[in-house]
Amino acid sequence: MTINWLQAAILGLFACLCSNSCMAGQAVGNYTIGRPLVGGLVCGIVLGNLQLGIACGVAMQLVYIALVTPGGTVSADVRAISYIGIPLAMVAISSQGLNPLGGSAANLAKSVGTLVGTVGTVLYYAVATMNLVWQSFGWKDVHNGKLDKLTAVNFGWPWVSHALFSFLPTMLLTYYGATAVTALQTALPMDGIAMKTLFTVGGMLPCVGIAILLRQIIGRVVDFIPFFVGFTLAASLHLNLVSVTVVSLMFAVIVYELEMSRGSKPTNGTTADGPSDENAEEDI
């Protein structure tokens, strides 16, 4: 598999749309186009191997299932993971001749993607730093009362930052990187220590992603219990994720009712709804 200039340029455009300060809005850009699962779909279509693209996307999504960016600090960059990492992983997997749906292909994808994603944080900070230039234009406009120019500052100029630090790096790295990844195949034999380690690490990397998530949701030691119940349902009873979610809803209802009745007076009426996000908002 090779990547031509046109394909590399399309990947570069998607990189502009999806990175953390993204041109397609946060919900559509970063949280949709930027997710590795969606990136896998896009890369699969662009590079003409949908199945392999999705398989790589699934593998990498596991590592980055929780991409919380508290206070704008990032430990991984979605544009690099999804639009540099996935294409390179696809090239690597197909040049190694691995089964795209096998565990080894997934582990290779995770290692390549995580490496690229971590290094890619430099792109995130580069864009954010260059935006300071446009913001200085903006402050001047606010100061001089030229409010109409604020729209260009917020929606227009940042494209320049992305052209330099999203489009170009993605295009160049996917175009030249594909050749390098193929060359690497001869340099590193699959049964050598380096590749064995790479694949083993790939298998473990999602643990870091899950651990980041746990850091977010676990306050006390007892909070581990629902996590272990979910794990046991899937690992020992082999329930799929939709079934685990349904079982968890039962517990959620119980918790909700308990918390609501803990106060002095009984609550009336509003507790009947399920504890889903949308209902909670419409309740009042």
Binding site: G203, I210, I217, L233, V255
Partner: peptide, 24 residues
């Protein structure tokens, strides 16, 4: 209360994700 309840769903699903998709 809603946040706590949703938190339970989140924890259990995360446990399920780990068991279904990661296998060391």
């Amino acid at each position: 209360a809603v946040r706590h309840a949703i938190g339970i769903v989140g924890s259990m699903v995360v446990g399920g994700v780990l068991a279904s998709w990661v296998n060391v």
